[in-house]
């Protein structure tokens, strides 16, 4: 038996903690706040007539509020005999320092009425582990709360948390992929392009004077000298004109190997972008591709390519 298991057995054997009385009796103002916040329009909680008609014999509280009544408040502290607090301390000490709630099941034995004063106890059901999880190695800790009015059990809850040791971040070794991407510099001449990608449009600069299509764009048309750039929205389809399979060195934001393709769009201009959705060995010059907009974050959407469906040649 590990130390964690020994401590778990000891805490579980201590059984229920002493009942902790709710701060206030069940009351209408708290119910009104709760049903408003939750959006529960059932009149039996707020309209005495409706409650009467429904056979409750007066206003009742929403059963799902059961935890609300015994919450500790903003500065609340666990009682010294709280088994969950004790178990958390044991696991903290063993290095399982992070916690995430996994699930809870509540059972309601009856409705509560205005003015009833509930108390709650906690006992430790079980501690299972160590388990390997996506978050890291940890223990599933299950506790059981019981709510009483006097000696009568009115509700119960089984509550489970995962208490885990955070998976170590990979050291700065060659295999780690840096999180940051290289962002484009954007200016007056190019912002239309990036505004377009954010909207799902692949925009090609078109001269407002002679209609020349041009990518990358610029402020003055090299054909006619006009400084009236407009744009059209590309159909986003074309062919791989050339491509690179990048292996070394690492590139921020990307796992290697990856493919960068120079695509000749049907409109006649060429454009670079990452090509995904195909094994690097299967890429070839002439491969039919289409644009995909890959959102990096709220400020940046990158145009990327994927093989065009039914585009075999």
């Amino acid at each position: 038996m590990t130390r964690v298991e020994e401590e778990a057995a000891r805490i579980a054997a201590a059984g229920e903690s002493a009942p902790r009385l709710a701060r206030d009796p069940v009351n209408l103002p708290m119910v009104l706040n709760w049903v408003e916040a939750i959006g529960d329009a059932n009149p039996v909680y707020t309209d005495p007539e409706a409650a009467e008609k429904a056979g409750h014999g007066g206003l009742v509280a929403p059963p799902a509020m059961i935890q609300v009544w015994t919450m500790g408040g903003l500065h609340g502290q666990r009682s010294s005999d709280d088994p969950l607090g004790a178990m958390m301390a044991v696991l903290d000490e063993a290095g399982y320092t992070s916690v995430v709630a996994t699930n809870s099941d509540q059972t309601y034995h009856r409705y509560l009425r205005q003015g009833e004063h509930v108390a709650v106890t906690t006992r430790l059901d079980d501690v299972v582990g160590p388990k390997r999880t996506a978050l890291g190695e940890g223990w599933f800790v299950t506790t059981r709360n019981t709510w009483y009015v006097g000696d009568e059990v009115v509700a119960e809850m089984r509550f489970r948390v995962l208490k885990f040791r955070p998976a170590e971040k990979p050291a700065a070794v060659a295999e780690a992929v840096p999180a940051a991407v290289i962002r484009p510099a954007v200016n007056h001449d190019t912002e239309y392009f990036w505004q377009g990608t954010a909207l799902g449009e692949l925009r090609i600069q078109r001269c407002g004077g002679c209609g020349l299509l041009r990518h990358p764009p610029g402020p003055m048309c090299p054909e006619c000298g006009a400084t009236k750039p407009t744009h059209l929205v590309s159909d986003g389809v074309g062919e791989v004109y050339s491509y690179v399979v990048h292996h070394h060195p690492r590139v921020p934001g990307r796992a290697t190997p990856f493919v960068v393709a120079l695509v000749e769009l049907d409109e006649g201009v060429r454009m670079l972008g990452e090509l995904t959705g195909i094994a690097p060995d299967d890429v070839r010059v002439g491969l039919p591709v289409e644009v995909v907009f890959t959102k990096v974050d709220d400020d940046l959407t990158m145009p990327t390519w994927r093989p065009r469906a039914g585009g075999g040649s």
């Binding site: 290289i182 484009p184 510099a185 190019t190 990518h215 690179v244 990307r254 960068v260 990158m302």
Partner: peptide
Amino acid sequence: SWSYPMGLGT
């Protein structure tokens, strides 16, 4: 900005 952000960086 037409190459580096697309992954063509060396």
